[in-house]
Design a protein around this nucleic acid. Structure first.
Ligand SMILES: [Mn+2]
Ligand SMILES: [Mn+2]
Ligand SMILES: [Zn+2]
Ligand SMILES: [Zn+2]
Lengths: 154, 154
DNA sequence: AGTTTATTGACACCTGGTATCACTAGTGCT
DNA sequence: AGCACTAGTGATACCAGGTGTCAATAAACT
């Protein structure tokens, strides 16, 4: 496998995440813990509404607003990445802090994360050509994973 | 300016667009024409709701559903590009058919379109490494244009 | 002109998300 | 342990953006 990508994700434990929240001045509450636990239960991208549904069933009955707020907090503390797909629907991916890009299977959600940003050269070139001050970029790749190809799900 | 990008956009006239619609089996209706005219009035990205508002005022009073439907049709016929920004809000850009990427000013919406896709190499590499069948990708770049920098709007 | 069929738009509906605000519960201090 | 302070919670109402329905309309074809 080349240097431009990797699928290993930093697997944070619940307590590590809660440490990190505390370090950023956030309190350690019951509902927050429940959301973190639910988030860790996902290895594939999930939507906010999915999490809302899961947690509405659970024993603690976490409210809608809390789920959305907590996702925002977790993203701001870099234990969660928010990916907006081309159709405009955002989903979340746990355990991926920092600047990353992804290759996602359109059928099963399997995700390959790549850490090396292939955009650095292009960005430098664009900046010097257009005199824009470049601040941000989006780059996500979509396709069908080997397993889904095999299964004839293609 | 290098070969990787360009700001020239194919400027289609109203009649050319309507020809194109007809070629794809769409009828040439009054409301459709009004939407096309309104779209051509924009050189910068605009939202669907903006267009709905503009056309609600106009003499023809085009309905909400029609505007959305027509945007979809125009995008499918490649006279319009739909861009989803990182916050998930879609906007439309006229006169940009085909596979393109954009550099957008976050303040004034000035857009530089680049036609050469910088992703082709990366995609080939990703495909051979991961055995994904790669189908699609998003790539948009955001920043501040020279004019906005000058104006101290930064 | 008449027939066919795509298109229209009013309307109701929906999903995903936010603002409000009285209440609850962590946290730090003593 | 008790208290004060403030962050966090969640019910509720609300909102934006967008979609489905369906009877009425108007292109297109003959
Ligand atoms: Mn990057
Ligand atoms: Mn491309
Ligand atoms: Zn798959
Ligand atoms: Zn600008």
């Amino acid at each position: 496998m080349s240097h431009t990508h990797e699928s290993t994700i930093t697997h944070l434990t619940e307590t590590e995440i809660e440490q990190r929240l505390k370090q950023h001045g956030y309190r350690l509450t019951g509902p927050r813990g429940a959301v973190v636990e639910a988030v860790l239960g996902h290895t594939r991208p999930f939507t906010a509404e999915q999490l809302v549904a899961e947690l509405a069933d659970g024993p603690e009955a976490i409210g809608r607003a809390t789920v959305y707020r907590t996702l925002e907090v977790l993203a701001s503390v870099d234990v969660l990445t928010r990916i907006v797909s081309p159709d405009g629907h955002p989903s979340y991916l746990s355990g991926a802090p920092g600047h990353r890009h992804h290759l996602l299977c359109e059928l099963c959600g399997t995700t390959v994360t790549f850490t090396a940003c292939p955009m650095t050269d292009l960005i430098a070139e664009l900046a010097s050509d257009t005199h824009f001050e470049i601040r941000d970029h989006t780059l996500e790749v979509f396709g069908i994973c080997p397993a889904c190809q095999q299964a004839g799900r293609v």
